[in-house]
Computed example of a mutant assay.
Amino acid sequence: MKLTKIIVLIMLSFLGFSKNSTAQEQDWANLTKYKEANTKAKTASVVFMGNSITEGWANVNPDFFTANNYANRGISGQTTPQMLLRFRQDVISLKPKAVVILAGTNDIAGNTGPITLEQIRDNILSMVELAQANDILPIVCSVLPAYDYPWRPGLQPNIKIPKLNALLEDMCTKTGAVYLDYFTSLADERNGLPKKHSYDEVHLTEEGYKELEKMVAACLKKQL
Rank of each mutant, 00 (worst) to 15 (best):
K40W: 01
K221P: 00
A177I: 05
L220G: 07
A37L: 13
A217D: 08
L9K: 12
E207R: 05
I92N: 13
G154F: 10
Y199L: 05
G104C: 05
P162Y: 04
G16P: 02
S198M: 04
L117A: 09
P81K: 12
I120C: 02
V100G: 08
M49I: 12
A44K: 09
V202S: 01
V60Y: 09
D181C: 09
N69F: 06
S198I: 02
G74L: 01
I75W: 08
G16Y: 01
R190A: 01
A37P: 01
N72I: 02
N59Q: 06
A146C: 15
I101M: 11
Y149C: 01
S76K: 10
N158K: 12
C219K: 14
E129D: 07
Y70Q: 01
T4K: 14
N111A: 07
H197I: 00
E201H: 10
E201G: 00
F64M: 00
P153S: 09
V91F: 14
Q24T: 05
K5N: 10
P138C: 07
L15Q: 11
L31N: 15
T39F: 07
F65Y: 14
I108S: 03
S45C: 01
C141E: 10
N191G: 07
H197C: 02
R86E: 06
R152W: 00
T105M: 11
S76M: 07
S126L: 11
N38H: 11
T22C: 05
I120P: 08
N191S: 12
F183G: 02
A58P: 02
I10K: 06
K214Y: 04
N106Y: 10
D107Y: 05
A103R: 08
V128N: 12
N111D: 07
Y70I: 00
L12F: 08
A44C: 12
L9R: 07
Y149L: 02
I7E: 13
R86V: 06
Y147F: 13
P62R: 10
A177W: 11
P138I: 05
G192I: 04
A103Y: 11
L94P: 09
C219W: 04
R121D: 12
I7Y: 14
Y147H: 11
N30W: 11
D200H: 04
Y34K: 09
L84F: 09
E36V: 08
L168I: 07
D122R: 04
T54F: 01
L212M: 12
E189F: 03
K35C: 06
I7P: 04
P81D: 15
T80A: 14
Y149P: 04
P194E: 10
T79D: 09
V202F: 00
S198N: 08
V91E: 14
K40F: 08
A98L: 14
G56M: 12
V140P: 10
I108H: 01
K40E: 13
K35V: 06
L167P: 05
G154C: 07
V178L: 03
Y147E: 13
L84D: 11
V178H: 13
E55Q: 15
A177T: 03
L117M: 08
A29G: 03
T184Q: 13
E201S: 11
V143C: 15
C141S: 13
E129F: 00
T173V: 06
K97G: 03
G208T: 01
